[in-house]
């Protein structure tokens, strides 16, 4: 099994995010992580960027597009957006960007909480395989994986990426 450290990657993402926030003139951006891995990544970035408003978390289970095929996710968590998203600049954080379906679901959920001023996307890892026209603004690293390989984040203390292969 192949472990990849993330510390350097997170530092680089934080500085890119800082530049993005400045460049776009985002007033006190609101960071939201997607359960579970995205929340872990968001916690690290949140600390590095020293944002003022509390960190939000989203569980997108109720917005997934495969409910009629796989049913309700058994470990669904409540979403927690401590502050209104209305007119706010949002930085959405996830661990892995693959098909783009998770991000689609997250965008829909955020809009049910209000109308944000903007949403930017930061991901620790992106891989090929997009099924929707969704791209990240900040990417930790790009990995080349074959169709039978998966990448998973382990945490939450020390974040490590693990590449697994189907039998």
């Amino acid at each position: 099994m192949n472990h990849i450290e993330t510390e350097q990657c997170l530092a680089q993402m934080a500085s890119e995010l800082k530049a993005l926030i400045q460049q776009r003139g985002m007033q006190s951006p609101l960071m939201i992580g997607i359960h579970t891995g995205g929340v872990w990544v968001a916690e690290k970035l949140y600390e590095k960027l020293q944002l003022s408003d509390p960190l939000g978390s989203l569980d997108i289970s109720f917005y997934r597009d495969d409910f009629t095929r796989i049913g309700l996710h058994p470990e669904v968590k409540p979403s927690n957006l401590p502050i209104t998203v209305e007119d706010r600049h949002i930085i959405l954080v996830d661990d892995v960007l693959h098909t783009g379906r998770t991000i689609r679901a997250a965008l829909n959920e955020i809009f049910d909480y209000g109308r944000p001023a903007s949403i930017s996307l930061a991901v620790l890892v992106e891989r090929d395989g997009r099924e929707l026209p969704i791209e990240a603004n900040v990417v930790g690293q790009h990995v080349e994986l074959s169709a039978n390989q998966h990448i998973k984040l382990e945490g939450p203390e020390r974040l490590q990426l693990v590449v697994q292969e189907d039998e």
């Binding site: 569980d59 289970s61 109720f62 917005y63 309700l72 058994p74 470990e75 669904v76 968590k77 409540p78 979403s79 927690n80 957006l81 209305e86 829909n108 959920e109 809009f111 049910d112 909480y113 209000g114």
Partner: peptide, 18 residues
Amino acid sequence: DAAESFTSVKAQQVKKVP
């Protein structure tokens, strides 16, 4: 447990999930 996660829906401006 599932009910616990549905409690956050009432905090939404649009109190609905699809």
